[in-house]
Amino acid sequence: MSGNVVLHLVIFFLSIAPFTIAGAQTLIPELYRYFVTTRGHMTASEFATVVALAQIAPGPNMLVVSLLGWKVAGLAGLLATTAALIGPTSLLAYFFGRALEKLKNAPWLAVTKVALAPIVIGLMLASGTITSRAANHDAIGYVLTAAAAVMIYLTNRNPLWVLGSGALIGLAAHKLGFMTLPP
């Protein structure tokens, strides 16, 4: 029963691993589709909570994937999703890393980097949009999202500071009766 769920998780992550560019944040729209829309493992606000917790925790942003696995199938889920995503990409880095290191001055490497940049930005904005829709239920939520985006864009503060402020404002808004809580 739960073995099936874990197997399904492994197959899904193996299938998206080669498409992970610039870390796990660009995967969020696909993760949302799988965990919320297709498989119904969690609600939209639970998904948004996982994204937030993964950002609060120290470490690589790949951890959002580990936490999603944990939510669905505990320790087995965490190990399965982490290994199924990081295994293939690490193998790629292992086999091509040394070869590429020798080719680091090849002109196509610089060209590829330039070519990927706008696509990565498009993916990040899409991830932000999907997460924002999942997280926000009212105007206060959207105002918080916009304010956090501006803070991150304009300052070089540690992101934890922005997440902490968000949490405090959420708490205050709730106490004052301004905010509707997700069910």
Binding site: T49, T131, A134, A135, N136, L144, A146, I152, G170, H174
Partner: peptide, 10 residues
């Protein structure tokens, strides 16, 4: 919920 809204903005 507040942190999640901020995380989207991040």
């Amino acid at each position: 919920a507040g942190a999640a809204s901020a995380a989207a903005g991040l």
